[in-house]
Design a protein around this nucleic acid. Structure first.
Lengths: 195, 195
DNA sequence: TAAAGGCGTTAACAAAAGATAATTAATAAA
DNA sequence: TTTATTAATTATCTTTTGTTAACGCCTTTA
């Protein structure tokens, strides 16, 4: 018998969820594992699994006209990865989702999840929680672009995402901040010389 | 008797909503009207009404350390305005929400809405719809900051928001794009000379 | 009607960022 | 361990943006 209370603590998922509902969810979910550099979701994919990252780190990136990779988002443990193009936009994925570290996940098919939610109404609270969390994160990011300078944006990013600089390459962080790697390097130097 | 089908068409609100559920919602909602320059929500406010803009235009702005107004978002008719700081962050509003035009709204207290949703489960679909739409919009905005240059961002903005340049001052648009009014003026000139 | 204020444009200069390439440092592969 | 690759830093130059201020235009107010 799994200790669900412990599970909740460890995986921080079902915040507003009863143990019973969490059990329903976990019963339907499968375990998965991705090696470093392995893709969870490919560009053009119609895979509609929703992943919950137990451990590891996922990079969402796009390849532009010039063939360059542009990283949009870094998603660490205890967060949800999904093919948002499919779920929100009803189109194939414009992005790649790649494991940057060995990544352990729960995953569940979105249609199955929909069905599960309709049969267990209390799960709706959890869906709401996940959606609100995504919304909050996204809105805070918009705010950081409107209200902050690139330097301030960098400082806030590393503050909100402790240890990230030791886990991923700077060029990915630069992309996420909407600047070039060269510019990020200069910003870091500027900050260093201030202190 | 109100023709709800017509209402749905006009107000585009209850996309996934049955007429009955829409009726429940509208019955609980009050009508409101704001004159130009009037505030829907003040900074520091704990007002937790959710507004649906029937007609008009609302500006969400912030006053920074230097006392300057910085516009974060422009919200036109058929969209939802809410005190997100209160609802998502459990804190008083950091922003002002000001009518830029005479603005007609439906509004409903968020707690009342919560209660309504719990008693009419089908309304949950509508809440999901609103949340997903906000998320989509916010994510697209983040993408525009990461993937596009200021000039491209401006072009996409006016494309996605037809007629906006005739409705609001350029300085508000500049803020929303994360640039200065002077820079926006230069971008417009650059675009003009290209054609 | 005149005065005042606000806004968009333009100018001038400083600061920052982009682009490209060279160098150094770190990492991965042989 | 050595070699090959890849990433980060630095340098140089160009372009863009920020800042401040001046100017003309328009709207509002007296």
């Amino acid at each position: 018998m799994v200790d669900l209370n412990r599970l909740k603590q460890i995986y921080k998922f079902g915040k507003e969820l009863s143990l019973n509902d969490l059990q329903v969810l976990l019963k339907a979910a499968k375990n998965g594992s991705f090696d470093k550099k392995e893709l969870l979701i490919n560009e053009g994919s119609t895979r509609n699994d929703v992943f919950y990252i137990k451990s590891g780190l996922v990079r969402c990136f796009h390849i532009n006209d010039k063939g360059e990779e542009v990283t949009l988002k870094l998603i660490p443990e205890h967060q949800v990865v999904a093919n948002v193009d499919l779920i929100l936009f009803s189109q194939t994925s414009r992005f790649f989702y790649e494991a940057l570290e060995k990544t352990e996940v729960f995953f569940i098919n979105y249609d199955v999840l929909q069905d599960l939610v309709s049969r267990h109404p209390k799960l709706e609270a959890n869906r709401k929680y996940v959606l609100q969390r995504l919304l909050k994160e996204s809105m805070e990011r918009v705010e950081s672009f409107v209200l902050l300078s690139p330097e301030e944006r960098y400082l806030r990013f590393v503050k909100d995402f402790p240890g990230i600089t030791n886990r991923v390459q700077d060029k990915y962080i630069a992309n996420v901040l909407g600047i070039t790697p060269v510019s990020l390097s200069r910003i870091r130097k500027r900050i260093a010389t201030k202190n």
